[in-house]
C-alpha cells in the first residue's frame, strides 16, 4: 500500500449535484483562506495575482451556484467553468474553466455519478487543460498536481488529495517551461508553482467534501437528502 491512501476508506459518498456544489463551495473557501499564500507564490515567479484572481473567480462561482443551483453534477461543473473563464481575468481562468467545463460535459446530465466516473471526467478535463496551455507533466504547471490527482482518484478521494499535494510540492525543484515563469529560466527553480498549489487546494476540497458526505450518509442512511 502506498502511504496516504486511506484518508477516506469506508463508505463512498453520494455524488449528486448537491455534493458538487458543496465541493466548489469548499474550494472557494480554501482559495479565500489561502489567497495570500497563492499570491506570494505567484510573486516569486509570476505576476503576483494568482490568489486574488482565483479568489474573485471562485467567489463568482459560489454566487452563481447559490443563485441558480443546477440539478446535475455535469451542469454544476460546466456552469462553474464558464464562470471562471469569464471572471478570473488571468490565465488560471481559462485553464480552470476548461478543466471544469470539459469534466462537466463528460458527466453529461446524469443525476449521480461514481468516483471512478468523476476521475475519468477529470482526466478528460486535465487533457483539455494540457492542450489549451500546450503543456505537459514536468513543465512546472497545475498539471503536475492534477495528473497524479486523477490517477489517485481512481483509487480513493484521499489518494487524490495526497497525490495532488505531493505533485504540487514536487514542482519546487522544476524549471518552468510554460507561462510567464518560463521567461525566468533557471531562476524559476526553488519555487512552488502557484497553479499546482491551487490545484492541490481544489482536490483537497474534493476529498474533504467526500469525507464529510460519507459521514453524513452514514448517519442518515445512504442517499438521504441534505438538510
Amino acid at each position: 500500500m502506498e502511504p496516504g491512501t486511506d484518508r477516506d476508506e469506508g463508505t463512498e459518498p453520494t455524488l449528486d449535484a448537491d455534493f458538487f456544489i458543496r465541493w466548489l463551495d469548499a474550494a472557494a473557501a480554501a482559495v479565500a483562506r489561502d489567497a495570500d499564500r497563492l499570491t506570494e507564490l505567484d510573486a516569486a515567479i509570476g505576476d503576483a495575482d494568482h490568489g486574488s484572481n482565483l479568489n474573485r473567480g471562485f467567489a463568482a462561482v459560489t454566487r452563481r451556484l447559490t443563485e441558480k443551483p443546477p440539478n446535475a453534477p455535469g451542469a454544476v461543473l460546466t456552469g462553474a467553468g464558464r464562470t471562471l473563464i469569464s471572471s478570473v481575468g488571468g490565465a488560471s481562468g481559462p485553464l480552470y474553466g476548461t478543466l471544469l467545463r470539459r469534466a462537466g460535459k463528460e458527466l453529461g446530465d446524469a443525476p449521480r455519478v461514481s468516483r471512478v466516473q468523476l476521475a475519468e471526467a477529470l482526466r478528460s478535463g486535465v487533457g483539455a487543460v494540457a492542450e489549451l496551455g500546450g503543456a505537459g507533466g514536468g513543465d512546472k504547471t497545475m498539471l503536475d498536481a492534477l495528473q497524479p490527482a486523477v490517477e489517485g482518484l481512481t483509487r480513493s478521494f484521499g489518494a487524490a488529495a495526497t497525490a495532488a499535494e505531493e505533485g504540487a510540492l514536487a514542482t519546487v525543484p522544476l524549471r518552468a517551461r510554460r507561462g510567464r515563469a518560463a521567461y525566468l529560466g533557471d531562476r524559476s527553480i526553488g519555487h512552488q508553482d502557484p497553479g499546482a498549489a491551487s490545484s492541490a487546494l481544489l482536490i483537497g476540497a474534493l476529498a474533504d467534501t467526500a469525507t464529510r458526505a460519507a459521514d453524513d450518509d452514514g448517519h442518515r442512511g445512504n442517499g438521504a437528502d441534505r438538510v
Binding site: 464558464r82 473563464i85 469569464s86 481575468g89 488571468g90 490565465a91 481562468g93 481559462p94 485553464l95 474553466g97 476548461t98 467545463r101 483539455a128 489549451l132 496551455g133 507561462g179 510567464r180
Partner: peptide, 21 residues
C-alpha cells in the same frame, strides 16, 4: 500573450455554447 491567448482559445473552444454571451 499569455492569458489573452488562453482566454480566446477557451472562448473559441466553447463554440456557440454560450449563446448571446
Amino acid at each position: 500573450l499569455g492569458s489573452a491567448v488562453l482566454t480566446v482559445r477557451a472562448l473559441v473552444a466553447e463554440g456557440g455554447d454560450d449563446g448571446d454571451e
